[in-house]
Amino acid sequence: MKGNIFEIQHFSVNDGPGIRTTVFFKGCQLHCLWCHNPESIDDKPGEFAFVASKCVGCGSCFRICPEGCHSIADGKHIIDREKCTFCGKCVKMCSGSALSIYGDKGMTVEEVMSEVSKDRSYYDESGGGITLSGGEPMMQSGFVRELAEAACAVGISVAIETNACCKYSYLDDVKNYIDLFLVDWKASDPAKHKEYTGMSNEIIYENLCRLNDSGKKVLLRCPIIPGYNDNEDHFRKIAEITKRLDKSIGAELLPYHSMGVGKIEKFGLEDRVRYIVAKPPAKETVEEWVRKCRSYGGRMVNE
C-alpha cells in the first residue's frame, strides 16, 4: 500500500509535544476558507509548485518540457498544470530551484519510516515523535493504521492532526496506535461550520466526546479567523467543550496567519480552491481571546 504523502517536515515543534516530524497527507474532505495547506486539499497525487521570486529566467524548463507546460505571457511565466505529467525533467534542470513537485509518487510505509527514523534520537530525548497531518490523514485511514502501527512497533510516538469529520469506526480502528489526537474545532454554529468548511460539525463534536470517553488524549485546536469565528458564542463553546472533554489536555487557540495565501499562487490553486485573505490578529487581540475563553471556564494551553 502506498500513502498519498506530499511532504515530510523535520523539527516540527508546534504539532504536539517535543521535537517531531510531521507527515503531510494529501486530500481533505473539508475545504476551510483559511486552510494553511491549500495544496493538500485535492487528493490527486502530485502538485506542481512554482515560486516566481526564485526563477532566474534561464529558460531550461521551456526547452526541456516534452508536454509544453511552460510559456510566457505578458512577461509572466505561465504553467499549464493540466498538461503536466510530473516527469520532473524541468525540476531537475531548474537553475533557481523555483520549480518543484510535491507528492507525485506516493510513499510506502517503509519509505516514510525510513525518513522519520532519522530523527529517532531527538524524539526519544524530547518526548516527541511523529505527527500525521495534512490534508486529512483519516481520508487514508488504512495507511494511517499501517504507518502508526509500524511507528508504535519501534517505539516512536504518534500524534494525529485530524478534523475528525468521519465515521467514528475509522477513528476507533486507528486509536490504539495513536497517543494524541489534535482535533480542530473551527466554528461552533453548525451552519457557519458548513459555510466555512463545507461540512457540519455535529459529527466532529460526537467524535470528540467518544475519543475522550474512550480514554484517548485529545487537544482541541481552534483556528481563530478575524471576521469569521472570533465571536463570543464560539469562545464560550470552546470553553464548554474543554469541560466536556474531561480527559483532554484542553484547547489551544491558533490565531490566523496568512501563510496559506502565498501557497495559492505557488501551487496555482486560484481556480481550484476557495480562500479568503484576512489580517493576522495582533498579539494583544489573541491574548484577549484566550482570556475570554478562560473567563468562561475553558482550559486553555496557550501561554
Partner: peptide, 22 residues
C-alpha cells in the same frame, strides 16, 4: 521563535542531549 518559552527550552535541551548521545 523555534525555541521560545519553556517548551522551546525543553526542546533545545533535548536537541543537545540527543546530539551528544549521537
Amino acid at each position: 521563535t523555534l525555541i521560545k518559552g519553556q517548551r522551546g527550552s525543553d526542546n533545545l535541551k533535548a536537541l543537545i542531549k540527543a546530539y551528544f548521545k549521537n
